[in-house]
């Protein structure tokens, strides 16, 4: 049964929200969520790449031979990643420096390749764009949520505005690597509790 366009969008926000339901794309999730701002920037970059690559893959799906499809997908994705990289370098330079090597690494983000393979290669162009946008938005929400949690407790700020007052002792564990893993694990646990009800 074919889903409606709205359903394709909404599924990315809860049913298949990355990286919780689809355990893909963990590396950028862990690495860039030290603050809300980083998470948001990364999320928007991923939405752009995901929508564009889904669109192009869907357009070319009858031309790309199935044996070399992965290579074709990667070249398409890499092209859009370069576009994002150059755009960010031009317009949001401080953010570009903060995200560092994680911008070129969008190319190896399993979510983007996963959607190209699992969805865009089999569906029409409108559906693919909507799917890319939905999954991308879900990813951004997750990044912002995790970023907020870690920034508030780890540095005592939200979007670099102090929230707890001067007497707050930052819980540095949260912004370091071990905190990232534990935090994501516990959020996944919350999702499971919420989902089972």
């Amino acid at each position: 049964m074919a889903k409606s366009i709205t359903q394709e969008f909404v599924k990315g926000l809860w049913d298949e929200i990355p990286p919780f339901r689809l355990v893909l794309g963990l590396c950028p999730t862990l690495a860039v969520t030290k603050s809300v701002e980083n998470g948001l920037g990364m999320g928007v970059a991923v939405i752009f790449v995901l929508v564009c690559s889904n669109m192009l893959v869907s357009l070319l799906r009858n031309i790309i031979p199935s044996k070399v499809r992965i290579a074709c997908f990667i070249v398409i994705i890499a092209t859009f990643v370069i576009v994002v990289e150059l755009l960010m370098q031009a317009y949001t330079y401080p953010l570009f420096l903060k995200l560092g090597i994680f911008i070129p690494l969008i190319v190896v983000n399993c979510i983007v390749l996963g959607r190209a393979e699992a969805f865009a290669y089999k569906n029409g162009i409108v559906r693919s764009i909507v799917d890319g946008f939905g999954i991308g938005t879900g990813f951004t929400i997750s990044l912002v949520a995790l970023g907020a949690l870690r920034e508030v407790f780890g540095s005592g700020t939200f979007l670099e505005i102090p929230v707890f007052g001067p007497s707050f002792q930052p819980f540095t564990f949260m912004v370091e690597a071990p905190g990232a893993f534990v935090c994501l694990g516990l959020m996944l646990c919350m999702m499971n509790i919420a989902g089972n009800k």
Binding site: E176, A177, F181, L186, M190, N192
Partner: peptide, 22 residues
């Protein structure tokens, strides 16, 4: 505990391991 199973506990364990490497 049931909600923590699989990937979830995996991530928490990874966090502990990261703490050791830290």
């Amino acid at each position: 505990p049931k909600p923590l199973q699989d990937t979830s506990i995996g991530l928490v364990v990874a966090g502990m391991l990261a703490l050791a490497f830290f």
